[in-house]
Every structure is written in structure tokens, then in C-alpha cells.
Amino acid sequence: MAGKALITWGGWEGHEPEKVAALFRAMLEDAGMQVTVTDSVACFDEADSLRDYDLIVPVWTMSELTRQAAINVSEAVSRGTGLAGCHGGMCDAFRSNVLWQCMTGANWVSHPGGDGVNYTVKIVDPEHELVSGIGDFEVSTEQYYLHVDPANHVLATTRFPTVTWYHSPNGPVDMPVAWTRRWGLGRVYYNSLGHKAGVIAEGPAHEMLRRGLLWAAEGKAAARATGESHADYASEGSHF
């Protein structure tokens, strides 16, 4: 597919952001996209430039983001630029920024047992194009517990608790692993796998992310096809 993508990486080195960014770059370039990669969030200060992209892929665990930078990304996505990413690089990014959390659809809060937890990823919408043909699969990695927007369209889940912890007395819950959502005209995709680059380098997790990134990049084209406009969702006043 044609189009332009921006990948920005940095933050906590334990999540191997440079390696994860390289995996995403390969996925997008193999699909024919023109990819820009940067290791700075200064790119989020360029409001007009952000709107030229078809896709933004953040790989930034923790770190800080200014209110204006978050607004710039939000305005780009609301006009059709896609937003897609994985693990801490998107939903444990910029913890103090509530606009970022609302836009991405969740915020990480814990991973009981740490790395190397064995659990099942269950596909819950097997007819959806982003997971069609991908069955349930096992992983050994961090199991993310997230505070999740109920408006997300959930594609896959995992059952908690796998590891006993203080939360265990609350009983079993199915926690979303992958989802889609809308932000104005923009398409947003997230997958909680990816603690290390090797977790998403191949297999079902890799394929889910590949499809998710490309799906998110089609937001502008989808809006043109349906006749939706930014004005359909914009409103006056401060929301954050």
C-alpha cells in the first residue's frame, strides 16, 4: 500500500524500543509505505507535519509528553492519521497525559509475575479481518493488566489471574490484549504483547501487529469512502 508512516522510539530501554521500531519499519516498508523513523518526541511538536502522515507508531515506554504535543497528535489522528503500537510503547507511554490515555484506549497498571508468565491469548472476534485465521495461542512474556476503555472493539483477551497477587481475590477477569477504536476519523490499534522484540518478531503476534498497523494506516481512505469529515466529530470547548 502507498502512504507515509512516522515511527518514533525511545523511553525505557528494557522494552528494546530501537529493535521494536525496526520490526515495525520492516512491516510497513514491506507493504510499500514510506517510513520516517526518529528517536525523539520533538516530531510531535510539528502539528502540520503530523497531519501529512497516514500512520503514527509510538514506541515510548513511560517518558513525558507536553499537553500541546498530545493535542497535536490528537488533532492529526482525529483527521484520519492512524495510530498503532504495542505493549508499553503505546499504553504505558506518557503516564501523566490523560489525553494520550483517552486516545489510545487504555493505561497499563501492572504485570503480575513479571516477565516469563505463561498464558493464553484468546481470539474473541475470529471473523474480524485483523485476526481472521489466527487461532488462540500461547505466549511466555509479561501479562499486561490495563485500565481499559469499554468503548474499545476487543479482538483478543487473556484470563487473569494467572499469577496469584493482591488482585486475585476479586476473581477471574478477561483482560483485552488487542483492540481497535476510533478517534474522530482516525483508526487506533493496540496490542499488549511486545515486552521484548523477540515476542513479536514472528508468529501470531507478529501477524496481528502487521495487520493492525496497516489497518490503522487506512483511516483517511476509509473516511473518504464513507464521506465522513472531521467536522462530524469536532466540538468547541476544552475537553482535557
Rank of each mutant, 00 (worst) to 15 (best):
M1R: 13
A2Q: 14
A2P: 14
K4I: 00
A5E: 02
A5M: 04
A5Y: 00
L6I: 06
T8D: 02
G11S: 06
G14A: 03
P17Y: 10
P17C: 13
K19F: 10
K19Y: 07
V20P: 01
A26C: 11
M27T: 01
E29D: 11
M33V: 03
T38S: 14
D39V: 00
V41E: 02
D45G: 14
A47P: 05
D48Y: 02
D48W: 03
L55C: 10
I56W: 03
I56S: 07
V59M: 15
T61A: 15
E64H: 13
L65K: 05
T66C: 04
A69D: 04
A69T: 00
A70Y: 00
N72P: 08
E75A: 12
E75H: 12
V77A: 12
S78I: 00
R79L: 08
G80V: 02
A84H: 04
A84I: 05
G85E: 04
G85L: 08
H87Q: 11
H87F: 07
R95C: 14
S96R: 13
N97L: 04
W100M: 07
Q101P: 00
C102K: 15
C102S: 13
M103K: 08
M103W: 02
T104Q: 11
W108K: 02
W108R: 06
V109R: 14
S110H: 08
S110Y: 07
G113D: 03
D115C: 05
D115K: 07
V117H: 10
N118I: 09
Y119D: 09
T120M: 15
T120I: 09
P126G: 01
H128A: 05
V131K: 05
S132H: 15
G133Y: 07
I134E: 11
E138T: 10
V139H: 09
S140A: 15
T141A: 12
T141Y: 07
E142G: 02
Q143D: 12
V148K: 06
P150H: 09
L155N: 01
T157C: 13
R159V: 12
R159P: 03
F160Y: 14
P161N: 08
P161H: 06
T162S: 12
T162G: 06
W165D: 15
Y166G: 11
H167L: 13
S168A: 13
G171K: 07
G171P: 08
V173M: 14
D174W: 13
M175K: 03
P176F: 11
A178M: 12
A178I: 05
T180H: 08
W183T: 01
R187C: 01
R187V: 00
R187Q: 11
Y190V: 15
Y190D: 03
L193Y: 08
G194N: 10
H195A: 04
K196V: 04
I200G: 06
E202Q: 14
E207T: 15
E207V: 13
M208G: 05
L209M: 14
G212C: 09
L214Y: 08
W215D: 01
G219E: 00
A223H: 06
H230Y: 15
H230Q: 06
D232S: 08
D232K: 03
A234V: 11
G237E: 05
F240C: 09
